[in-house]
Design a protein around this nucleic acid. Structure first.
Length: 580
DNA sequence: GCCGTTTTCGGCCCGACTGTTTTCAGTCG
């Protein structure tokens, strides 16, 4: 069993404990044990086999045997028992805003509520308001929140849609009767929130193809709609549509099913001028069927410059005379905003650096949290020396990759930057982010951010609005004023590739670019695996129509090093002259 | 549940906000 699976089991135990136990520290002990396991630098099997478990901090007499059970038996009797005490799916109530594990525990023990439907019925009957710790306002909030929770359960993050789509595509491609399978729809357009997965399936024998899909159980609750459409559900109930098409019509089927509806409509009317028509996912010219094995051949045949799928949200893009070369993952030479175990990262400096080198980066910037971020174990001024020494010690091992020492410093309530000017010069770069007081009004929040942008040590503005997709709307700011100030001060704005954040929003990126703001694609990585968030950052940049020239970290290492050093020097001069 | 040279109990990362309370618990970041 790998360490991630063990950690997940420990977290599940922590959640069950929080439902029922009054002592909050017991659940926290399991949480911290999970973190310990995740940050192991060797396999958990090895740790158990060699008896090293007992000397691992945070894992004591109770948790030790649970970890050993998980590793040696593949399950834990303790966790099995906890699971049997509650109905499955009780944690779906967490989707309701204002409901945490404590309240869910009370709802279950007092009223036996363990699903959204039961909760809704009880709240409508007024039974929730009578519970200890609940009241009329909470009951109203819950009723409002159930709608949100239901909506959230029918929407999915792009990263999830892509994972389900690609895994299905791979399994479809293994079927003999299927020549090709390509993910289309809003996933292919890289829309940040999707409600379904669409796959074009090219086959010369749809009867056999459908029979195989059914036989292999690739989808749940399969419905057949004629011979060209199969609908079902993938993992976690995401709706999936398979669009069966003859291989000769694959290009047309891709255009139509990729959408958007607006784009396809505009595309159809553009090509109609030359006598072409899209009908039932097939291409016709003056009534005669035209082969379109792939999309680029189709665009060429109808004499329209190819439009990258990410740009197909509206038909306006068809007015362009030429295709713009969008930024690609291979364009990124390095990245910033990478956390380590010095704050809330799960991997050490050494692990993160060698993983960055293995991705082929020429440079990487380490940026742990600043002291104000208590909950994220921010690095104190005293601990900085140790971290910098550790980074310096690792440099030679990952050469010639260049390592920059940075921070993700909190923007404090008044807009000043955590650490202050006594310490900020010690960093090669500073990502400034807001992690507290999200509820400020638009005016106050904008003022706070403008002041942060005025600090000469700030290099990059981190996750612009703090939004969490399907979780939390970002704080309100006046974007144009922030973009103007960022351009004026030469502060970059981050494209945060974390699939839950994906901001600055692709709908806004063009406005920032037009005002002269430079952008930087960062992973906000808290583990080796999360370094891949630079790829989702590239999706966003492509969706915004950006090229390599708009992105700072497509620049070569020498240019980047020079830029950062000059900026740091200038900041120190400005601060010194202000003090004189 | 874990930890500890103050060693078997008492503390455990913090703060804003909200609603239910009338001094605090739960949620969220």
């Amino acid at each position: 069993m790998d360490k991630w699976t063990v950690a997940r089991a420990l977290r599940e135990i922590a959640s069950y404990i929080e439902l029922s136990e009054p002592n909050p520290f017991k659940a926290r002990a399991f949480e911290s044990a999970a973190r310990r396991i995740e940050s192991l630098d060797r396999s958990v099997d090895d740790l158990v086999a060699t008896g090293g478990l007992h000397s691992t901090p945070g894992i004591g007499r109770s948790i030790g045997p649970i970890v050993a059970d998980l590793v040696t038996k593949g399950h834990s009797a303790y966790l099995d028992e906890l699971r049997s005490r509650y109905p499955p799916g009780i944690f779906e109530l967490l989707r309701v805003p204002a409901l945490g594990l404590k309240k869910i525990g009370v709802l279950y023990s007092e009223l036996g509520i363990a699903s959204l439907d039961e909760l809704e019925a009880a709240a409508q009957a007024g039974r929730v308001a009578g519970l200890a710790g609940f009241g009329a306002k909470t009951q109203k909030k819950i009723l409002d929140g159930i709608a949100t929770a239901r909506r959230r359960s029918s929407q999915f993050l792009l990263s999830f849609g892509l994972e389900v789509g690609e895994s299905l595509r791979g399994r479809l491609a293994q079927i003999d009767a299927i020549e090709d399978a390509i993910v289309s729809g809003s996933v292919r357009r890289r829309l940040e929130i999707v409600d379904s997965v669409d796959i074009v399936v090219a086959t010369g024998d749809s009867v056999r193809a459908i029979a195989e899909v059914e036989k292999r159980g690739l989808l749940d609750r399969l419905e057949q709609d004629g011979w060209t459409m199969l609908r079902g559900f993938g993992r976690d109930e995401i709706p999936v549509s398979l669009h069966l098409t003859a291989p000769a019509d694959c290009g047309a089927a891709l255009v139509v099913t990729t959408g958007s509806a607006d784009f396809v409509e505009a595309f159809a009317s553009t090509i109609a001028k030359n006598g072409f028509e899209l009908r039932h996912r097939e291409l016709f010219h003056n009534g005669r069927h035209i082969r379109s094995e792939n999309e680029s051949a189709l665009f060429e045949r109808v004499a329209v410059p190819f439009v990258d799928p990410e740009l197909r949200e509206s038909g306006d893009v068809l007015r362009r005379k030429k295709r713009v070369r969008l930024v690609e993952p291979a364009d990124l030479k390095g990245t910033f905003h990478v956390h380590t175990t010095f704050s809330d990262g799960r991997n050490s400096v050494a692990e993160m650096l060698s993983a960055a080198r293995d991705r082929g980066f020429d440079y990487v910037g380490i940026s742990d949290h600043s002291p104000n971020a208590f909950y994220a174990n921010g690095v104190t001024v005293d601990d900085l020396t140790g971290q910098h020494a550790e980074i310096d010690a690792q440099r030679a091992l990952v050469a010639p990759m260049r390592v920059f020492r940075g921070t993700e410093a909190d923007i404090l309530d008044d807009g000043t930057i955590d650490y202050g000017h006594a310490t900020l010069p010690r960093f090669d770069f500073v990502v400034a982010s807001i992690h507290s007081r999200f509820a400020m009004d638009r005016e106050a929040m904008t003022a706070r951010m403008l002041r942060a942008l005025d600090d000469p040590f700030v290099t990059i503005l981190g996750h612009l609005t703090g939004r969490l997709l399907l979780g939390r709307t970002g704080y309100a700011i006046d974007f144009d004023r922030v973009f103007d100030r960022a351009a004026e001060r030469g502060v970059m704005i981050e494209i945060n590739g974390n699939p839950h954040r994906l901001e600055l929003d692709w709908r806004l990126a063009g406005r920032a670019i037009d005002r002269g703001v430079l952008l930087c694609i960062n992973p906000d990585a808290h583990s080796i695996a999360e370094l891949s968030h630079v790829i989702s950052g590239v999706w966003l940049a492509r969706k915004a129509g950006l090229s390599a020239k708009h992105i700072f970290n497509t620049r070569p290492v020498d240019e980047v090093a020079d830029y950062l050093e000059k900026r740091r020097q200038k900041a120190m001069e400005r601060v010194l002259s202000a003090e004189c």
